[in-house]
Design a protein around this nucleic acid. Structure first.
Ligand SMILES: [Zn+2]
Ligand SMILES: [Zn+2]
Ligand SMILES: [Zn+2]
Ligand SMILES: [Zn+2]
Lengths: 165, 165
DNA sequence: CGACATAGTGTTATATTATAACGTAACGAT
DNA sequence: ATCGTTACGTTATAATATAACACTATGTCG
């Protein structure tokens, strides 16, 4: 993965991910403490699996990972989905609708609009913060009370455009 | 400037839907003829089911409808999915990712960006043409070659806000 | 026409994603 | 300690989607 300063999203940037990971987990812990919520070990476990990369994972991928690291117990889907539900609710992760997958939030606590660039070549997904969201304003102008917005842009990232063959 | 700030989406407007339906089917027929594509009876059948309303339907809802109107044959999922794939490819219908559902395009042939307002009260979905140019331009500026964009805004429509208790 | 290539359909089975339902355990407050 | 609540574990099943392969319709060319 080469440095691509122009692409937003940490997924596309070279960085000390060890540190990044630790930081995000710490932020999650603090955020839950502030909100008086329980980041239980299951929830933390699922979050950590997602924090291991900046890639989206399917619920069953996460499930497999849980069962791989802990072959004694046989975890079942509802456990994963419940943890995901909690993490989604607190904005610690996002759901990528067009992939049926989940990804750790790059800026937990920012209550950021979740907007994604999805490269169909390298499968990397970058969360990016579109500062000016005219769409929501427009929806608002039309009398629509916006609750949640899904913005997922599929295409080819800058790096992959170079390697076309 | 694009023609926006109209009331979004025909789904939310009172109109002669009989006529609307006929018109859209006719446009689809013509469009396929122009493109030298076969709007076979199966494909037309699926399109007609979606054109019966401006509401999104799951693939299995469509399947059920097929099997209801024609109880002799027992249609299976792949048939529906293949018809949907064709219709999606030609822009005659759209897929709503956050609902796992399909909806007829309000403006076939316009190659319109597919943007949706989804009311979580009345479940109506309005296709609306907004200037998400900002977003796409931003992606473009960042070196990302946009292929397809998903914009789905969930909330409460103007009408439902009045009736809230 | 009749052989052929191709696109579309039908059928079976199965993969993938997600939830219902219900009981148990942990926790937090009286 | 008991009680209400939240989270977890377990089983079963629902809902969504595709793989694989056989068959049929359609158009093309000699
Ligand atoms: Zn990182
Ligand atoms: Zn890429
Ligand atoms: Zn109509
Ligand atoms: Zn509504």
């Amino acid at each position: 993965m080469s440095p691509k300063a122009q692409i937003p999203g940490i997924a596309f940037r070279k960085h000390d991910h060890r540190r990044c990971q630790r930081q995000l987990l710490s932020e999650a812990t603090q955020l839950c403490a502030e909100r008086n919520l329980r980041l239980t070990s299951r929830r933390r476990q699922v979050l950590e699996i997602l924090l291991a990369s900046h890639q989206p994972m399917g619920a069953y991928d996460i499930l497999a990972e849980l069962n791989r690291t802990d072959p004694d117990e046989q975890i079942a889907p509802p456990i994963v989905y419940r943890a995901l539900e909690f993490l989604l609710g607190e904005g610690l992760i996002h759901r990528i609708e067009s992939l049926n997958a989940f990804i750790s939030c790059a800026q937990p606590g920012h209550r950021c609009g979740a907007q994604f660039l999805i490269c169909r070549d390298c499968d990397q997904v970058a969360e990016f913060e579109a500062s000016d969201d005219g769409l929501l304003a427009e929806a608002g102008n039309l009398g629509f009370a916006v609750d949640h917005s899904v913005v997922e842009i599929t295409g080819v990232c800058a790096e992959c455009q170079k390697h076309v063959g």
